[in-house]
């Protein structure tokens, strides 16, 4: 892997010296492994518009394609990490969680309901989500259903009666906070985004979403 990266890099450097840039014709795709070719198509052959505007200051569009350790392991194992890998992933995920100071206090379930419903945020060109005009949502309904009033997706488990079934003791709340913050702590290589660890939701927003799940007055627990 390392060796071939150098090979590709050397080929690119040679092309740069010759005053041309790498296109399909310059590099022999058939000499690369599928993984090498995929990386090449993404990062060298201009497969994505890396000059696209992004919402996060100081970040670039290209950053989004660079895999971190978790993404690499979950890609390589197609979301089925070995027991050793899984243990490492969940340990690192637990490490990443920053809990609120003191007891966990539920936020506003009405705000949480709208956050859970909103699919706005972080999308780029050709229809850029301007976070200055509207704050990003939590996308929960894409994959989960919460109550009968609005249809949710089925990629994740149903969260109906979440609080009613579990109660609101601190250990229960702490567990739920951890799952929303970084779900790999409990489910290594889950498809659920790392809402807290990746800075997608603030602590206050997570507590609002949790209120939607746990508050006895929330529609989630009213059925």
């Amino acid at each position: 892997m390392f060796d071939t990266k150098i090979r590709v890099a050397a080929a690119c450097a040679a092309l740069a010296l010759a005053g041309t840039y790498a296109t399909a014709a310059d590099v022999d795709y058939t000499k690369m492994t599928p993984q090498e070719l995929a990386e090449y198509l993404i990062f060298e052959a201009k497969g994505y518009k890396f000059d696209a505007q992004v919402q996060t200051e100081g970040a670039t569009a290209k950053d989004r394609l660079v895999q971190d350790e978790l993404q690499k392991v979950c890609t390589e194992t197609r979301n089925k990490p070995s027991p050793e890998q899984a243990a490492k992933i969940s340990a690192a995920a637990r490490e990443s969680i920053k809990y609120p100071e003191g007891d966990i206090k539920l936020g506003d379930w009405k705000k949480g309901r709208e956050l859970a419903w909103s699919g706005f945020g972080y999308r780029l060109d050709p229809n850029f989500d301007d976070h200055k005009k509207s704050a990003p949502g939590a996308n929960c309904y894409n994959c989960h259903e919460f109550a009968g009033d609005r249809q949710g997706g089925t990629i994740g488990p149903s969260l109906r009666n979440y609080g009613k079934l579990r109660g609101t003791e601190q250990p229960v709340l702490k567990l739920a906070y951890g799952i929303i913050y970084n779900a790999h702590s409990m489910f290594p290589c889950t498809r659920m985004p790392r809402q807290g660890a990746k800075g997608l939701l603030t602590e206050a927003q997570i507590l609002d979403v949790m209120a939607y799940l746990f508050d006895p007055e929330s529609p989630v627990n009213k059925e």
Partner: peptide, 14 residues
Amino acid sequence: AGEVVFYRRSGPFD
């Protein structure tokens, strides 16, 4: 290579 890309996890939502 397309198959690799199909399964390659990245982006802010993984």
